[in-house]
Every structure is written in structure tokens, then in C-alpha cells.
Amino acid sequence: MNEFAKELKAENADWVSEVKEALGETTITVPREAIVEVCASLKTNHGFDMLADLCGADRGPEEDPRFEVNYHLFSTKHHSRLRLKVILSEDDPHVNTVSGVWKTANWHERETYDLVGVIFDNHPDLRRILLPSDFDGHALRKDYPLRGYEPYSLT
């Protein structure tokens, strides 16, 4: 098992619900209540000072739980990478923001909210970022049609 996963589990057993290693990458599934604490701990104690990427994914409307949010952590000190995963159900797609831990999470979370529709609680400025504010629906959901609901017209 990855050393960071081990240390994390030793720190608090509730923080790690699953560890998966595949293709040279480690994925730690974290319960959504603990994500901010886990991130803060990884940042301060384990040197993961950069959030390289944050992205949401939709598994499809028939799946339950439906959404997942992936946090790709990177350390500028020891150059290792780690993926945290939070799994969310369709009825309650809420997770706490990590923009307090890394400021870069701000736009990533706005993008995830815009395209996937995951709501980040306590986010300082949760608005649409890529699509116009009157856009209907969340484009990256599997049940959103590729061409949208209607062709574009100015009027």
C-alpha cells in the first residue's frame, strides 16, 4: 500500500474508505465529510502543497452513487502524485470546498459545478464559469444531449 495512504489511515481510520493502486497511481477514496480535513492534513503534514487538478465525473443516470470528484494532488517537494476521490449520490451532490486549503481549487470547483453540477458548500463564489449564467442544465452529465436542447438563435 502507498505510504501516504498508510500514514493517513494511521492518522484517522475514518478518513480512508478505500485504497486502490492501479497503473502506477494511487487512488484513495475519502468520505465526503472528511475531505477538507484530509486535504489539510496532506498539505501540512505530507508536503502535498499543490492541487494539480480537480474534476468531477458523471457515471451515468442509472448508477448510484452517480457522481465522483477527483482531486489530483502534487508535491513540489517530493514530486509524487496522489488521487483523492469523493463519491456523491444524485440526490445530495454536496461536498465541502477545499478552496480554503488551496486557492487554486476555486476555479476548478466552479468549473465542476458548471459542467457536472456538483455543489461545493461554503465556496466563496460558486457561479457558472464557462457557460452563460442563463444556461439550462449541466453539460457534462450523461443525460444532457450532446447538441443541447435546441439549436442556437439570437432571438
Binding site: 453539460a139 444532457y144 450532446l146 447538441r147 443541447g148 439570437l154
Partner: peptide, 13 residues
Amino acid sequence: FDNYAIVQGVDKI
């Protein structure tokens, strides 16, 4: 880019 985000031809505008 035949999708939701792109206007299919600027001649519509």
C-alpha cells in the same frame, strides 16, 4: 464541434 456550446455557423448571427 457539433455540440451544445458552438453556434453552427456564424451566418446565423
